[in-house]
Amino acid sequence: MIVFELAAASIRMSAPLLYASLGELLGEKAGVVNISLEGAMLVSAFAGTVATLACGNLWLGLAASVAAGMLFLAAFAALTVALACDQILVGTAMNLVAFGLTGLLYRERFGASGAALTLPIFPPVRVPLLADLPFVGPLLFEHNLLVYGAFLLVPAVHLALHATWPGLALRAAGEKPETLEAAGYSVRRVRAAALLAQGALAGVAGAYLALAHAGTFVEGLTAGRGFIALAIVVSGRWTAIGVLGVSGTSVAAQFHLQASDLGVPYQFVRMVPYILTLVVLAQVSRARSAAPAALGR
């Protein structure tokens, strides 16, 4: 049954990547690259941890994470959209701030002794009837609520982008901002709104890691998942469906590599996502035709 458990674990571990990469997708479709997605998730995870410990309520913890993510992205939007600073530079700086800030506050509050925190986590919720299906039931329908939310978000984002007017405006902001501006709408506002939505989703992704996956907070909890989400958006060719496919397979691949005893030190296996990220980013320039035309400008 090891295969079965790996599959269920893959589904669970896809969830935070889905939240993060769908959020990044919204931003990139509007023309903004946010490489501080990692930082946003880290800050959110920390905020969720503190709030959960303080209030003893997971949902309040989640709300705190979402608020922190939106605040983080509001700062990013203020710099990149309102002040038109370079997106990559701002993203780099904000990542450094996020790493430093969470590390500092963590030690400040919980001490540097290394005694692990223990947090409650979102419990699995069995979907009535469906969970009783043989094989498929436990695989797909015995997860925590955030997992269901992640998979429902995929069609939701797709429809929001293609079947609503705000989605049209958002994509126009990423493809040809001057046309949107000429039609009498503010590109800045559209981009800021997209980034705030991204902040909320990065918040859920961060909360997931602390409150649904690890059940604790450590420095660098996000472990590069924000960067992987960036790569997922690229190799998913900037579509929600593509993002779903790529995040599923990349998580499965990682588990598979960890599980199969290749005689390779596990540290190298854990490098795989990062190497993958580099490879994919190198492909970005080649994939340029699928990218929003005004991305990064």
Binding site: H162, A163, L168, A169, R171, E178, A182, A293
Partner: peptide, 27 residues
């Protein structure tokens, strides 16, 4: 010309016109 190239003709016209009631884009 200031059209959004990956968009369809209708999407370009609707983008300029503004949202329909309810904000949906029904193809």
């Amino acid at each position: 010309l200031a059209l959004v190239e990956p968009f369809t003709v209708a999407e370009n016209l609707v983008l300029d016109r503004g949202p329909a009631r309810g904000g949906l884009y029904r193809r």
